[in-house]
């Protein structure tokens, strides 16, 4: 995809200092390209280190191929860069150790994360991979908020948690699928463990 056709994240020009006005180009795993300001990139420790190591000039970022981010798709990466542009220049938060952790979700972030859980799941993986501390904080807070007022049975549905019985059934099924001889050995091992034996051999 050419740079001209690439989805470009809105940039607040006034908020960018003149000397920092450089835009890097990134490409998602489904070949969508994004232009992101240098200041916005600083929200991501991973990308910040990457561009520092590359040492690109303004000409390089235009002439060289876009930097590939191979394990994040375009839809998710768009959200990530929108978040980074909105929060560019903000300090990276440091955990103060309070219990529970106090995290406020700003209005912009709440709107940005008004997405289905599948995309939210991908956004969290992306924030983790790109090491964007505050995006990880707010997205995890959103996940934590889903638990409010729920019983354990309801939580199992919300968080797709199998019950102990389901876990055991899955384990048995996996054992069934194993080589019968390997299964026999494992059962014997479990039996010996139950009897308090120290060594299998």
């Amino acid at each position: 995809m050419s740079v001209e056709n690439a989805p470009v994240v809105d940039v607040d020009e006034a908020a960018i200092p003149v000397e920092k006005k450089m835009y890097y180009r990134f490409e998602s795993n489904d070949k969508k390209e994004f232009r992101v300001s240098e200041l916005a990139i600083q929200q991501s420790e991973t990308l910040n280190r990457l561009v520092e190591a590359m040492g690109y000039t303004s000409e390089d970022v235009e002439n060289k191929p876009a930097i590939a981010i191979e394990n994040i798709d375009g839809k998710t990466l768009k959200l990530v860069f929108q978040w980074c542009e909105h929060h560019k220049g903000e300090a990276i938060p440091v955990d103060d150790g309070s219990v529970p952790k106090i995290v406020e979700i700003p209005e912009f972030d709440a709107k940005l994360m008004d997405i289905d859980n599948g995309l939210l799941f991908k956004l969290i993986w992306a924030a983790d991979y790109l090491n964007i501390v505050q995006l990880l904080n707010v997205s995890c807070k959103k996940v934590a908020n889903m638990a409010q007022g729920k019983t354990p049975a309801q939580l199992r549905r919300v968080y797709l948690l199998p019950s102990d019985e389901e876990d055991e059934a899955a384990k048995r099924a996996a054992q069934e699928a194993q080589d019968p001889r390997a299964r026999e050995v494992e059962e014997e091992f479990e039996e010996r463990k139950r009897q308090g034996g120290n060594s299998f051999f």
Partner: peptide, 14 residues
Amino acid sequence: MLSLPVLRLPHLAL
């Protein structure tokens, strides 16, 4: 996706 598989999140996110 209606549910979010919390135990399948990355370690730091969980």
